[in-house]
Every structure is written in structure tokens, then in C-alpha cells.
């Protein structure tokens, strides 16, 4: 029997799914557990706050309850309902910030190690003994970073939102308040979650320069990829600062730090693009004197997540110039993955 005639082409899609599964197996802790734990911490803090509130209230003889949220809801004007919904969305979004920060850290260090750790422990020799191209290997790490990890973080966010609402409802129920009409608005929740999911591709395109740069350092470094990733852009900036090179080109040095260093190191922070190509709503929110101002701006958060805002970001050249640069860096990472097998030689 001629062995070669029985060669079957492996299904490329299937191979890619296995590669993603591989990434998940290796990084279950970061991708799956870390966001859940971050959400758990938020819930624990919320629970503690409620307990403290409850005991303080009891100690001072303050009597809560007797309120009827139902009646309140009925008495609210349409504008007030919208404000409340808007506030609830802000609150739920705010709750998810610890998860998103965790995601950013996890993805940052995942990418730094993605093409380095297996070279250091030499298990790269096992992966390279299988019929998988370096292109697929590197792309699977890109997809794990910009798709798989964020999806799992959003799943954890959904769990957190539900747990939080259950907690608040339980608290309300404890005081004979019916939480259902105002807090449990499935359409609003689902639309919030859908928007979070729809933001993944935008975040992904925005993150490409960082993804590419970290993968390149990971594939290139013979040791200490973190140092390469951080020290090179910072040293470059410092040198240009000393020599006033940028000023001579009439480029403010802030431009370099924001558009180069910021984009290649902090692009994995979800929503980093909020501030570009739009009407500065994000700055309005952050510069607002207090949350009430933000809440007073009717549907501000919804506008933050509106199609207009997303399309505004997508129409911004900043996003796409960065994405092209990121793609170039990824190609360079693939090139090094092909040639630099071990860290020693």
C-alpha cells in the first residue's frame, strides 16, 4: 500500500477549532476563571455593603420598607423611567469594569507568553511536530485574544449582572418591596448584553496594534518578552524626547505616547476607542461634575453604545491605520514563529 495515496487533507476549519480549544485548555484559568472570580469579588463587595447597610440601619432604628416600587414606577414620568433605566445600565456597566480590567490584563500577558512560553519550555517542538502551519498557530492566538477571551468575559459579565439583580431583588424583597417591575426588564438587559457582544469586533480591530506588537515580542524575544514589549517603545520615546526629534518634525511628543505607545501597549483595554472619531461624549462623562450630570443627559450611556458612536469609531482613520499596522506586526510574528524555534539557539 502506498502510504501517500491515502493522505487526506485535514479540514482547515476543524484544525483551527482544535487550536482554539488548545488555547482554552492552556489558559482556562485566565480566560474562564479570572473574569468569574472578578465578578465574584464584585458580588461579594455588594453583598458586604448591603449587610453593612442593613446592620447600620438596624442599629439606628431606621425602618426601611413599606415602599411600593410598583406604585413609584407607575407614578414616574416617561422621562424618569428612561433616566432610571439609563442609570441602571450605567450601574450594570460599571459593575462589569473589574471584569473588563481583568480581561485586559489576562489578554496582555496571554499575548506576551503566547509564542514565548512554549519556546522556553521547549514544548514548541511537540507543537511543531504536528501538521499545523505557523500561520494557523499565530492566528489561533489572535482569535483567542480578541474573540474567545472577550466572549468568556462577557459571559462572566452576564452572570455578574444576573447575580447582582438577584441580590438587589432579594434585598428589596426583604423589605417587602417588589423589585420586579423596575429592575427586571429583560429587553433592556438583553439589549445591553447584545451591545457588549457587538462591541467585540470593534474592540478587536482597535486592539490589533497591541495584539501584533505583543505577539511579535513573544515570537522574537530570546528572553524577557515583557521587557522588549515595554522598554523598546518607552526608550524610543525617551530618546526622541531628549533629541527633540519629534518637535523638529512638528509632532507633539504627546502624539507619540498616545498614538504609538498607547496603541501598541493598551489596545487590549475594552472600549479604548470610545474617545476617537466622535463628539467626545466619553470626556463629557468623565469630566462631568458628578454622576447626576451624566444621568441627566438623557440616554447618554445608550448614546455611548449607540450605532452612531460605533460607526463613528469605525469611520475613524485612527482605527484602521492602527489595524493595518497591527496586521503587519502579526505577519512579522508569523515570520519569527517560523524561524525562531527555541530560545537558546
Amino acid at each position: 500500500m502506498n502510504a501517500l495515496t491515502t493522505t487526506t487533507k485535514p479540514n482547515p476549519m476543524q484544525t483551527f477549532l482544535w487550536l482554539l480549544k488548545r488555547e482554552y485548555w492552556e489558559h482556562r484559568g485566565g480566560f474562564f476563571w479570572a473574569p468569574l472570580i472578578a465578578g465574584g469579588v464584585v458580588i461579594a463587595i455588594a453583598l458586604l455593603s448591603l449587610i453593612v447597610a442593613e446592620t447600620t440601619a438596624a442599629r439606628h432604628g431606621i425602618q426601611l420598607g413599606g415602599m411600593n416600587l410598583d406604585t413609584i414606577a407607575h407614578n414616574m414620568t416617561a422621562e424618569q423611567v428612561a433616566q432610571f433605566n439609563s442609570g441602571l445600565t450605567v450601574g450594570l456597566m460599571g459593575l462589569s469594569i473589574p471584569i473588563m480590567i481583568t480581561l485586559a490584563f489576562v489578554v496582555f500577558f496571554y499575548l506576551l507568553g503566547a509564542l514565548y512560553d512554549d519556546r522556553r519550555d521547549r514544548s514548541v517542538l511537540f507543537w511543531k511536530s504536528l501538521p499545523i502551519s505557523d500561520l494557523d498557530t499565530v492566528l489561533s492566538k489572535v482569535v483567542a485574544a480578541v474573540l474567545l477571551a472577550p466572549l468568556l468575559a462577557i459571559a462572566a459579565t452576564i452572570v455578574l449582572h444576573l447575580a447582582f439583580l438577584v441580590l438587589i431583588s432579594g434585598y428589596a424583597g426583604l423589605h417587602q418591596v417588589n423589585p420586579l417591575p423596575l429592575l427586571w426588564n429583560p429587553a433592556q438587559l438583553v439589549s445591553l448584553w447584545l451591545k457588549l457582544i457587538l462591541l467585540i469586533p470593534v474592540n478587536a480591530v482597535w486592539a490589533l496594534p497591541t495584539v501584533g506588537w505583543l505577539l511579535l515580542c513573544s515570537a522574537f524575544a530570546r528572553s524577557k518578552p515583557f521587557l522588549w514589549a515595554v522598554a523598546v517603545p518607552v526608550a524610543l520615546g525617551a530618546i526622541m524626547g531628549f533629541t527633540h526629534l519629534l518637535q523638529q518634525l512638528s509632532i507633539p511628543s504627546a502624539w507619540y505616547w498616545k498614538n504609538i505607545v498607547g496603541r501598541i501597549l493598551f489596545g487590549v483595554v475594552p472600549g479604548g476607542w470610545f474617545d476617537i472619531g466622535g463628539n467626545g461624549a466619553f470626556s463629557t462623562l468623565t469630566n462631568g461634575d458628578n454622576v447626576n450630570i451624566a444621568l441627566d443627559r438623557f440616554g447618554l450611556v445608550n448614546s455611548l453604545l449607540s450605532w452612531n458612536r460605533i460607526l463613528g469609531a469605525l469611520a475613524s482613520p485612527d482605527l484602521w491605520i492602527g489595524a493595518a499596522a497591527g496586521a503587519g506586526l502579526i505577519v512579522a510574528a508569523i515570520w519569527f514563529r517560523r524561524r525562531r524555534v527555541e530560545t537558546s539557539v
Binding site: T7, K9, P10, T15
Partner: peptide
């Protein structure tokens, strides 16, 4: 599982 998934032989 992984080798079974990616290796046709």
C-alpha cells in the same frame, strides 16, 4: 483529542 483532531493519519 488534540492530535486526533489535527492529524489526518
Amino acid at each position: 483529542d488534540f492530535v486526533a483532531g489535527v492529524h489526518p493519519r
